[in-house]
Nucleic acid binder design. Sequence first.
RNA 1: GGCGCCGUGGCCAAGUGGCUAAGGCAUCGGAUUGCAAAUCCGACAUCGCCGGUUCGAAUCCGGCCGGCGCCUCCA
Length: 575
Amino acid sequence: MATLSDPHPTLHAYNTLSKKKEPFRTVQAGKVGIYLCGPTVYDKAHIGHMVGPVIFDCIKRYLTYCGYDVTWVVNITDVDDKLINKANERGISMLEVAEENIKDYNDNLSALGVDQIDHFPRATDCMDEIIGFVKALVDEGFAYESAGDVYFDVAKDTNYGKLSNRSVDSMQGEGGGTAERKRGLADFALWKSAKPGEPAWESPWGNGRPGWHIECSAMSKKLLGETFDIHGGGLDLVFPHHENEIAQSECCHSKPMVTYWAHNGLLRASSAAGKVGGRGERDRKSSADEQASGKMSRSKGAGGLADLIARQGGERIRFFLLRTHYRSTVLFNEPAIEEAGSGLDGFYRLFKRYHRITGKDFYAIESPSTREAGAIEPGNDDVLKAAATCREKFLTAMDDDFNTGGAIGELFELAKIINKFCDQANLEDGGKNDSAAIVSLEKMLTTLKELSAILGIFSHPPQDSGGGDELLDPVMQLLIDLRAEARANKNFTTADAIRDGIGPLGIALEDRGGGTEWTGGDAGSLEGLMQLLIALRQTARANKDFATSDTIRDRLATIDVTLEDRPGGTEWTRS
RNA sequence: GGCGCCGUGGCCAAGUGGCUAAGGCAUCGGAUUGCAAAUCCGACAUCGCCGGUUCGAAUCCGGCCGGCGCCUCCA
């Protein structure tokens, strides 16, 4: 084996090839090449396609943070049987099918904060490299032509099966129509001859298209070299895809293809999923079958990823995926994403608290981007010591095969330390002027930013998933003012009526020293708020409290909302 | 049949030989609040079962029970 760099002092990575965690060494000192198998773009992406990109996005961020110069490649398979079938079904070209789904894939990636990918090679853009690779294998005697197809001769590769731990005899290979063209059942296609009308490229073996496995060998070689550091993909790709990649590349180059094989666990549909739409709790029998657990796939009803993101927001989904170690199976269901979101909300509240205290925006904090620069010097400060310990534990978890789940635990711990500090130093009130305390606070939030940046979260405020109405804020301000007045007058009946009235609309109030804040709300909330205001105004009028009733109408008028009293009740319109 | 993974509190989930088994969600007390919410404090598990190795195991070995994956396209 080629000599690798000295190991990183602390980082270890699991290797599917050795089935062990190994000290992290690189092909070239200070550099890391990562190749992740991307999607075959014959249809829209589903949530399962996001697992690999999210975890490798974190892996790249962490390696960069640790000082490596990282290049990350995700390939796009834009030529294969399924694409051709899809194109025929829809009466459009294969290229159009691909373009459409690549856009969908990219949109989903960016919604989940995956923005670290350096190269997105497409199989159809690398035909020369692919054909060259096949030709080299044929020339070396590892592959043979048969009736316009080219097959890899598995019998020539004595190491075949080392990744998936299989013996050649136990393999079925592609049966069916191609069996008689092959020398061995386990032989797999490098090049497939084209039928009339199919997309095809010229080659020494006639017109055809590449097999699935060869594109990854060719593209990784083109962009990362003959030996590179990390090759990732879903656990379901170990065999045959990655096994075949190894066979192709290592026979061709006579050297290791990859140092670390990293495979993420698969998403599983949870049978306990509380499906939206399945109202009837009673007819479990029929719906239970449909929700039978199994790997997430289109046939199991996965999909609607864009809708899911619209409902939940990308950050929740990313956080949900990172809570579990990447090699584990994740049971997927929407309530679980919401639960992850509840945890996330605590961080968002902390950021608001930080803003209340300092007037500064958490998202604007510039945090250290390297491991060395981020070290805290706590001195004798117990709080900073505790924060520094959290940071150490976070990094230890990440060092241990990118244990994002363990790392997230430390993030929560750090948030608690900060909240406690704010409480004890009374920072929302008199302590605001304690400049030493503010400095400590800033240090801890900077650390929080530094660590969350490794996970790729909290870089932007979460987008409003509900699509809030622009009237929501002024209407809420009016309600908050009315409630404040009621409270000042010890009229708690009215004050509580307001709070209890907006609660069911998905909006929560938090009374702070400096005023009342509100959170939540979606497109459907406004109507309920208006009805609440109308009811409050009716009550006021019934009590001859015309000051209040007029205030409501006048304040609404300033935001271009008109109330009209009619015999059947009051209606509101916006102009 | 072959290869492999998993089983930690109500739910999710770190921890893979040694301090009182992280953390999140939920629940129950307490501080705080006009009452709430938020925040903080506290309560809440001996790690599927049995046996073995060891001074010592959730962590290693064996058996059993239960769940899952790959062996065909798949992130």
